[in-house]
Design a binder for these strands. Structure first.
Lengths: 107, 107
DNA sequence: TTGGTTTATTGCAATATTACGATTAATAAC
DNA sequence: GTTATTAATCGTAATATTGCAATAAACCAA
C-alpha cells in the first residue's frame, strides 16, 4: 500500500516520525552536517558538496524545509539556506526526551 | 528511482540515516514508546496495542531488529521483544552528538 | 534587451515502503 | 495424534520515495 495510517497515532508520534523520516536519508544528513560545519548560510554550493543532481538536492532541501528544520532566504538569484535554530533545538529536545529513559534491562 | 545512492556517503551518515529511517514511522515510534512504558518484554500484545494487522506489526518489528534496536527472545509459541539497552543508548548518543551543536544564528 | 546564473518545478522511470490476507512453521495443550 | 495459538513469511496491491533531465522562473549583468 505504501500509505501510512497516521490517523491511528497521536500528533506527537506523527511529528516525531515525520522528523525522523526527513533525517532518514544520508543526503539530508550530509546537508545538515555541512550546515553545522560551516555555521553559516549555504548558497548553492551543496550540489558540488553532496554530489547529487541539482534537482535532487532541491527536493531534499524542500523536505527539510517542510518540517521547519531549514529556512531559505532569497538573495538575488541565489537562495541561502540555514538551520532554523529554534526548530533544531526543539528536535534535539524531542530526541533527548525519547532516549533519556533509563532501562532496567529485562532480557 | 527510489534507490538511495548510499555509496556516496560515509558509513556514519548511512548508519545515522538508517536509524532515523526506522524511527520515521509512527507505528515504530508507538512500538518503541510502548516498550519504554512497560519497561519489560512485550509478548505479542502489540497487535491490539497498535491496531495494525499482525503481519504489518511483524514487519515493523523486523526493521527495528535490523538496526539492532530490538531483540526478540523466543518463549514457547510467543516471542518476547525488548529494547537492546546498548544500542538504545548508542542511538541516544548519536542524536545527542548531532543536536548538541551550538548555532550562532546567521539568518 | 539579451544572455548568464541559480533554484524550483515538472514529468518520468526505477525502486522502496506500507499494509494485509493467506499461509507456514513452531510450539503448547489436550 | 489433533487442535489452538503465536509469530514469521510470502504474495500482492497501492502508494511513496529517489533521482535526474528538461524546463521554467527569477534575478543580475552587460
Amino acid at each position: 500500500m505504501g500509505l501510512t495510517k497516521s490517523e491511528m497515532f497521536t500528533d506527537q508520534q506523527n511529528r516525531l516520525a515525520a522528523i525522523a523520516k526527513v533525517l532518514g536519508h544520508p543526503a539530508r544528513i550530509a546537508i545538515l552536517q555541512h550546515l553545522l560545519k560551516v555555521q553559516n548560510c549555504i548558497c548553492g554550493d551543496l550540489v558540488e558538496e553532496i554530489g547529487l543532481a541539482q534537482a535532487t538536492i532541491s527536493q531534499h532541501l524542500r523536505e527539510m524545509k517542510n518540517i521547519g528544520l531549514l529556512k531559505g532566504d532569497i538573495d538575488g538569484t541565489k537562495v541561502c539556506y540555514c538551520i532554523d535554530e529554534v526548530v533544531f533545538k526543539e528536535i534535539g529536545v524531542i530526541f533527548d526526551d525519547l532516549f533519556k529513559t533509563d532501562l532496567k534491562g529485562c532480557c
